[in-house]
C-alpha cells in the first residue's frame, strides 16, 4: 500500500465519525432523563436543551470528514456513470478541487469566528447561561478534518490510488 499515511488519515476520520455516532446515544439519554424528570418529579434536567444542541453539533461536524472518507455524500451520478474510468478520475479530481476550495474558505472563516467567539465567551441565555463557544470550536475542528480528508482524497485520486484506498475502508450508506 503506497498511501499508508493517507489511509491512516481516512481511518482516523472514520473513527472520529464514530464519536459522532455516540452522540446519538447520549442525546437519547439526555432527553429521556429530562422528560422523565419533568413528568415524574416536575424537575426537568437543567440545560437539557442546550446539551442536546451541543451533541447535535458534535454529531454533524465531527461526522463530516468520515462521511467524505467513505464517499457517503449524496450525489447525482446520472452523467458520471457514463464516463470511462479515466474520465471518471478527471471528474473526481475536478469535483474534489471545487469542493476543497469552497470548504477551505468556509473552514478558514469559521476558525476565525471560533476564535472571536471564544475570546468573547459567547454564550446563550435560556434560564441558565450556557457557553456557545465550544460549539464553534467543535464546528471549526470538524471542518479542519474535512479539509484534511479532501486533501487526502485529492492526492490519492490524482496519483491514481483511489480505489485501492477506498477498498481498505468500511462502507456506509447515507440514506433517508
Amino acid at each position: 500500500m503506497r498511501f499508508r499515511l493517507l489511509q491512516a488519515i481516512s481511518r482516523f476520520n472514520i473513527a472520529l465519525g464514530s464519536v459522532s455516532g455516540f452522540a446519538t446515544g447520549l442525546m437519547m439519554c439526555v432527553i429521556v432523563i429530562d422528560v422523565a424528570g419533568r413528568a415524574c418529579f416536575s424537575s426537568p434536567l437543567p440545560l437539557a436543551t442546550e446539551i442536546s444542541v451541543l451533541l447535535l453539533i458534535i454529531k454533524i461536524f465531527l461526522g463530516m470528514a468520515g462521511a467524505q472518507a467513505t464517499d457517503s455524500n449524496f450525489q447525482v451520478t446520472l452523467v458520471i456513470d457514463l464516463l470511462s474510468p479515466r474520465w471518471r478520475r478527471y471528474q473526481r479530481v475536478f469535483s474534489l478541487v471545487v469542493t476543497l476550495a469552497a470548504v477551505a474558505i468556509i473552514t478558514w472563516l469559521s476558525i476565525g469566528y471560533a476564535i472571536t467567539s471564544t475570546r468573547q465567551g459567547e454564550s446563550s441565555f435560556g434560564v441558565y447561561p450556557f457557553p456557545i463557544w465550544p460549539e464553534r470550536i467543535i464546528l471549526a475542528a470538524g471542518l479542519v478534518f474535512l479539509v484534511l480528508q479532501l486533501v487526502t482524497d485529492l492526492i490519492v485520486t490524482t496519483l491514481g490510488g483511489d480505489e485501492a484506498l477506498k477498498a481498505g475502508l468500511p462502507k456506509h450508506d447515507a440514506s433517508v
Binding site: 468573547q120 454564550s123 446563550s124 441565555f125 447561561p129
Partner: peptide, 9 residues
C-alpha cells in the same frame, strides 16, 4: 434583542 442572544456582550 442582543441582551437575550448575546448576553456576554
Amino acid at each position: 434583542a442582543p441582551m437575550a442572544y448575546n448576553p456576554q456582550s
